[in-house]
């Protein structure tokens, strides 16, 4: 048997599915061929590891760690709410301030307009001339007169 043939039959050899004659030939080849022998031995050794169970022991602080993580998570959750709520609250306060400012200002403006229109009544023609001097006497005429 040559290496190529042996390679093809390795899986059957490891699964113990070779007939006696082929098995003997296979074994004979393994005696002479170091590399084929190494392949078979590495596969066997590695497969043995699959059956070996490595067991970890319990961690005495596991519960404390889990508890701390649950508590941290609820604090973080509150913080994340804070992060969302804070800008909303600030914007709301600013909008309320702006609205209050605008409504107060417009109220004062309307009041002052109402005061001018309703409460101030011209009492005489002299007063009207006095208040509207420019309309009655232009500045140029005023400067050209002697007295």
């Amino acid at each position: 048997m040559i290496c190529k043939e042996v390679h093809k039959k390795m899986n059957s050899y490891l699964s113990e599915k070779l007939n006696k004659a082929t098995f003997n030939e296979f074994e004979l080849h393994l005696k002479d061929c170091a590399s084929c022998r190494q392949i078979i031995s590495e596969v066997k050794n590695t497969m043995t590891l699959a059956d070996r169970t490595e067991e970890l022991s319990a961690d005495p602080f596991m519960f404390t760690r889990i508890q701390a993580q649950i508590e941290n998570r609820s604090t973080e959750r509150n913080r994340s709410w804070q992060k969302v709520l804070q800008p909303i609250a600030v914007t709301m306060i600013m909008l309320v301030g702006l609205f209050a400012g605008v409504s107060l200002g417009s109220k004062y403006y309307n009041d002052s307009l109402q005061l001018n229109a309703n409460e101030y009544v011209l009492e005489s023609e002299d007063e009207e001339i006095y208040l509207n001097a420019l309309a009655y006497e232009s500045i140029e005429t005023f400067l050209l007169t002697d007295n």
Binding site: M10, L14, Q38, I39, E42, V43, M47, A50
Partner: peptide, 11 residues
């Protein structure tokens, strides 16, 4: 399958 894959790898 493990055996096959390991065989391929070592071959």
């Amino acid at each position: 399958n493990l055996q096959k894959r390991l065989l391929d790898f070592y071959k």
